[in-house]
Deep mutational scan, measured.
Amino acid sequence: MEVRTIKVFTTVDNINLHTQVVDMSMTYGQQFGPTYLDGADVTKIKPHNSHEGKTFYVLPNDDTLRVEAFEYYHTTDPSFLGRYMSALNHTKKWKYPQVNGLTSIKWADNNCYLATALLTLQQIELKFNPPALQDAYYRARAGEAANFCALILAYCNKTVGELGDVRETMSYLFQHANLDSCKRVLNVVCKTCGQQQTTLKGVEAVMYMGTLSYEQFKKGVQIPCTCGKQATKYLVQQESPFVMMSAPPAQYELKHGTFTCASEYTGNYQCGHYKHITSKETLYCIDGALLTKSSEYKGPITDVFYKENSYTTTIK
């Protein structure tokens, strides 16, 4: 009895394709271990004539594949690729409408935090270190965002349907971005203890939790000093293409032309909904596939993004 075979390709990165001759009487799992086709788990399936010449994702289970996976995804987590594939199996079914010149995501599976993050990423200057993220990001900007969303979920250790947080998501993504040249110098002034300067680099240099107003941050924000008295913390120097200011959701007025974009969060910790506000020729609110415009805006804002380049204080 002759062994019926077909020729397929296996890959971990969709760049390096490895030619395989597979036995049609055995499952993919018996031949390769966990195997995925377009995100779908085909591990328990036997090869079919229609699979001839198709590319299958496999887990990096030998040295060659491990090197290829690390170079593309910059992670050695053995569960990463499987999590990416199972997320992709959902995100490829989502709709990605162009809204006001940006790629958004039609609401499904509690994905409003991903839509808000995706919209924000198209408006701030950011370059990702893992080629996987950078490639998928370019495709997302062009309207094909399924891979990018699935990668975000995998890097953030999230599953489809789980509630997510924009600030946490951005923080994970910033860790995989090139923020080497970003720098922030802060000064804390206390009447009792004097003053202390701190220099922050990388992710810490672009994120701040405690106030939404970048102007206020430049002037000074009140913080408790270690001595128990009130101290003032203010920005001395900022070198970065953008800054992200966050605070627990509270009524906040966004003035046209003073910011790049913002995240609105309605609801409580267990259950809520994100919308995205962007400042173009007027203010726009993007909620999944829905767009509304207004000249002014007041609502429960939790993150505001500002364009920056270089700032030095005039406070002496």
Rank of each mutant, 00 (worst) to 15 (best):
F217I: 15
L102K: 04
G288T: 03
N187T: 12
Q30S: 15
T103D: 04
H273T: 02
I223D: 08
K95Q: 09
K255A: 10
M207K: 08
P78K: 11
L254I: 04
G29Y: 11
E162A: 09
S263M: 08
Y72I: 07
Y208Q: 06
V189A: 13
D62E: 11
K191N: 12
K191Q: 13
Y297M: 06
Y172K: 13
C261P: 00
L121H: 02
V166A: 07
L65A: 10
K275S: 09
K106N: 10
P241Q: 10
H18E: 09
A146L: 04
F9H: 15
Q123F: 02
W94R: 05
R4M: 15
L133E: 02
C285P: 01
M245S: 00
V203N: 06
Q98A: 09
G267H: 09
M24E: 11
L254N: 04
Q196V: 10
A262P: 00
A108C: 14
I105A: 07
L151K: 03
T226N: 13
D77H: 05
V160R: 04
E308G: 07
S79F: 09
K219C: 10
A117E: 04
G33V: 03
G39D: 09
L133F: 04
S246Q: 00
T169V: 11
D135P: 01
K183D: 05
L151A: 03
C227P: 01
S295Q: 15
I277G: 03
D165H: 02
K127Q: 15
G194L: 02
N268L: 10
L290P: 00
G210W: 04
Y113W: 07
R66Y: 10
N268Q: 13
S294E: 10
Y155A: 04
C285Y: 05
P131A: 06
S246F: 00
R83K: 14
A231V: 03
A205Y: 01
P300H: 12
F259M: 02
Y208A: 11
L200N: 07
N16F: 06
T64M: 12
D135Q: 10
Y73N: 02
H90T: 12
L151C: 01
E281T: 06
G267Y: 09
G33F: 04
L173V: 10
K280Y: 09
A69G: 06
I301A: 00
D38F: 10
L173N: 02
T120E: 03
Q122V: 04
L235M: 03
T313Q: 15
V160C: 08
T198E: 14
H176N: 07
N89F: 13
Q251E: 15
D77W: 01
T312P: 09
E281G: 08
E162G: 06
A247Q: 07
M85L: 13
L186M: 15
S213F: 01
T116V: 13
T91F: 02
M207F: 06
L121E: 01
K218V: 06
L119C: 12
N110L: 04
Q230I: 15
